[in-house]
Simulated scan of single mutants.
Amino acid sequence: MYNIAVIGCGYWGPNLIRNFSALSDCTVKMVCDLDETRLTHMKRLYPGIETTCESEHVTRNGDIDAVAVATPVRLHFEMARKSLLAGKHTFIEKPMASSVAECRELTALARQQQVTLMLGHTFIYSPPVRRIRELVDAGELGEIQYIRSRRLNLGLFQTDINVAWDLAPHDISIILYILGASPVSVNCQGKAHIHPEIEDVTNMTLNFNNGGLAIIQSSWLDPNKVREMTFVGSKKMLVYNDLEPIEKIKIYDKGVKIPPHYDTFAEFHYSYHYGDMYSPWLKQYEPLKEECQHFLDCIRTGEKPESCALEGLRVVQILEAASESLKKGGARVEIDPPDQMPEAFNSCFAETEGS
């Protein structure tokens, strides 16, 4: 049985508290937040938990085995560093930190302390994303030619990060998970309409070695909530709409081909293929609960989390490069390949014996 503490119970923290509380092999022992009103609310929902406004009360508590950090992004590094230095297994909500340098330091610290460090890339634990990866790995869609992702809504506006850092980590982590490859460069353009110098609309393009690309549109300034990804393959096409209640994935047997031989322009015709559309059955479960259970399993076994420190670092690498591209008016910015990272960061996890 593991004792869990959650630091931050604003927007996302309560979801972590709820899911960890529902698991049989852990107890949410403590919750930390600067807002006394939020703590009072959590205490009313979960009378057995301890509450505090001081993060040191969490990290110095010898009964706490693991800490989940769900604070604003600017505090991720500080809170996670304190947790790791105290020898606590640590779960950090996306993105991992505010810079690649901070991610590297946290990863090295986790290895030094021999504790599990895991990232909250919740969507890679969801049934639709896992099914898409299965389909791509099986060659059902053929070679992936491009991906388009749209994550749009009205708010929630942030004051410390732009919309790319807020929303795009979801799409980036999904793309890395499904393709099993990292982009070699990024272009990003955006505009700040509401808060000066904080972009609320961005358009990011990830370029891959094989010529493929992924286009990620993020917005806090849209009238409708949109959560949609399109995967265009050489054989078939797939649309993933996370707002659909049941048929979240739809596969289209559609495509276009150039005729192999023709003698004159008059003989040249594109060959369009229109086939069936079907929606595969998906197992129903809450991705966040699956993610929380996976964190506990990794603590117990010492296995590498699927959303490990290296994956968190890769996402922040892309976001950092995107920020540089934004400053350069959308210019292409190269991204260091994973094999150029220090050896310490190629191992995503610290080997542990469990608690």
Rank of each mutant, 00 (worst) to 15 (best):
F20Q: 06
D33I: 01
L39T: 03
R44H: 11
Y46D: 00
I49D: 03
S55V: 15
T59Y: 14
A70P: 01
T71E: 02
V73M: 04
T90W: 08
S98V: 08
R104W: 04
T107I: 13
A108R: 14
A110P: 02
T116M: 06
G120T: 02
H121C: 12
H121P: 00
F123I: 02
P128T: 00
G139S: 08
Q145A: 09
L152V: 07
Q158Y: 03
W165Y: 14
I178E: 02
P183Q: 03
Q189F: 04
I194T: 13
E199T: 02
T205F: 02
G211H: 10
G211E: 06
L213Y: 13
A214W: 08
S234N: 11
L238M: 15
L238N: 11
Y240G: 01
I246R: 12
D253T: 08
K257R: 13
F265N: 10
Y285D: 14
E286T: 05
E290K: 15
E291D: 05
C298Q: 06
C298D: 04
I299S: 09
K304S: 15
L319R: 03
S323A: 06
L326E: 00
K327F: 00
V333W: 04
V333G: 03
P337H: 05
M341V: 01
F349M: 05
G354W: 12
